[in-house]
Amino acid sequence: MILNEKIKAAVVELTGVNGEDLGIISTKEALQMAKEQGVDLVCLSLASSPPPCQLVNRTNYKEQVIKENAKNRKAEKGVKVKEIRLSAYIEDHDYDTKKRQAERILSSGDAVQLTVKLEKKESQEAKRLIEQFIKDLTHCGKQDKGIQVSGKQVVANLLPL
């Protein structure tokens, strides 16, 4: 981060404290404006000519940069998939608990994989259960693919909105 007098360019493309475009002005004028307003002149990039600079309150700018970096790191990690296991014959209270758990996971930005382990011939009940689950969670997640019915389990994936 290049601040104030360390900016060596003769002219800069200046943006005000509130994001308004102030045009291309000399660095001396920009420094004078920064001193009058009690803020700092920050060079955003050295790649272009004239370099884009902004008048900012230094503490607010540092907080903003830290927040952006944290957001970028979270985006780099990608979406985690968390599994919720169910039984084909689940009671209402347990269903509500699992639904709240799935809502919490989806609202935090992670994906949910609903898995129903099958015993005997309960694939139709399991499929109906997953369909009901997906219908109840449409306000916070969307279905990734179709419901996959394999030999011993029924699986569906939900992505956060």
Rank of each mutant, 00 (worst) to 15 (best):
G19Q: 00
K35P: 08
G38L: 08
Q37D: 12
L31K: 11
N57C: 12
K35A: 13
E20I: 07
Q54W: 04
G23F: 08
S45L: 04
A30N: 12
S45C: 12
Q54L: 10
A30K: 07
C43A: 10
M33G: 02
Q37L: 01
K28H: 15
K62E: 15
K62A: 14
T27F: 00
M33Q: 11
V56Y: 01
A34T: 01
R58V: 14
I25H: 02
Y61L: 02
T27R: 05
Q64E: 15
V39M: 08
V39G: 06
T27E: 02
V39P: 03
K62T: 14
S26A: 06
K28I: 12
L44Y: 10
Y61M: 05
L55K: 00
E20L: 05
Q64F: 15
G19S: 06
Q54D: 02
L41E: 01
S48H: 09
V39C: 03
E36F: 10
S49P: 00
G23E: 08
I25P: 04
L44G: 06
Q37P: 00
A34E: 00
S49K: 02
Y61I: 03
L55F: 08
T59R: 13
A47F: 15
K62M: 15
I25S: 05
E29Q: 14
G38E: 05
I25D: 05
I25V: 10
G38W: 12
N60Y: 04
Q64I: 00
V42F: 02
A47E: 15
Q32A: 14
V42H: 01
I24A: 07
T59Q: 14
L22Y: 03
L22H: 03
P51Y: 02
G23Q: 10
Q64D: 13
L22N: 09
I25W: 06
V39W: 06
N18T: 07
V56N: 05
N18E: 15
N60S: 14
T27N: 11
P51T: 03
L31N: 06
M33K: 09
G19W: 08
L31C: 00
C53M: 08
Q54M: 15
P50R: 02
V56S: 09
S45Y: 09
I25Q: 06
N57D: 15
D21N: 06
T59I: 12
S48C: 08
D21T: 07
A30P: 06
E20Y: 07
K62I: 15
P52E: 12
S26F: 01
N18R: 13
R58S: 14
L41F: 08
N18V: 04
P51A: 01
L55A: 08
I24Q: 13
G23K: 07
L44V: 10
K28N: 14
N60V: 07
M33W: 01
L44H: 03
G19K: 00
C43M: 14
Q32Y: 12
Q37E: 10
R58M: 13
D40I: 00
S26R: 02
K62V: 15
C53I: 06
C43L: 14
S48Y: 04
Y61D: 04
S45T: 12
V56W: 04
S45P: 05
D21Y: 09
L46K: 10
C53S: 10
T27W: 03
L22T: 10
I25N: 00
K62L: 15
L44E: 11
P51W: 02
S48G: 04
N18H: 13
S45E: 13
V42N: 04
K35L: 13
R58P: 14
M33H: 08
L22E: 07
V39H: 09
T59M: 11
